[in-house]
Amino acid sequence: MAGTALQRRLTWLTAQVRDNRSESPSVHRLVLDVPGWPGHRAGQHVVVRLTAEDGYTAQRSYSLASPPEEPDLHLLVARLDGGEVSPYLTDELRADDQVELRGPIGGFFVWSAAADRRDAQEGRRPVQLVAGGSGVAPFAAMLDHHRRTGSPTRLRLLYSASTQEEILARDVLGPETTVTLTRGVPAGWSGEAGRIDADMLRRRTFPPDEDPRIFVCGATMFAEAVSSSLLDLGHSPSSIRIERYGSSGEPS
């Protein structure tokens, strides 16, 4: 593992909304300009803070879906009916509006091409990503980072979406990605169908003898099911890093 970095004091930064567009029927893509952004690594997250007129505040964590090479920050925000924060972010926020955020946060769930260059032994291990729903956000950053740096690290993504319309970050999904649809496939669909299980993992991901570094991101129950299947296949617990985002999808 590469040495950790000294953290800057995490202060609240003011982000200006450049764009807020529909990414899928249930998810919006927020594009933010953040003056003073110190840079990030693919996989890190930010905390977004909303403050009401009466001073009440609510905070939520979101993974950065854009790579370090991209100056704007992209968030993929799933709209949760009855949610305290996400309906505001998806429905109310307009270009030129401002939100507060702090970050980048977390050095555990990250992949960096530069770290693989520094640590040749680690860099030889392939990287396996497994996403459920909007859990693909940090992996969109990793795939884009991988492509833009021309990294030689072997990388694959197995991505579970509910329907074809709900596939996110299509612009960065390439031949390294296998998509499985859990609620029916359209005519002519060439990907997988159904929930990710041990059999699909065996067919579509790096096997244990290649000693992959595995990242799993999705709702808590999804992450639990995938990680337990991975252990059944013979992957070691220390090779699996998990980012669960809770049953509601709105981690606090």
Binding site: H45, R102, G103, I105, F109, M221, E224, E243
Partner: peptide
């Protein structure tokens, strides 16, 4: 189990 998150989420 459904309430469980990862230590990573405490980083902030």
């Amino acid at each position: 189990a459904a309430r469980r998150l990862d230590g990573n989420a405490a980083a902030g």
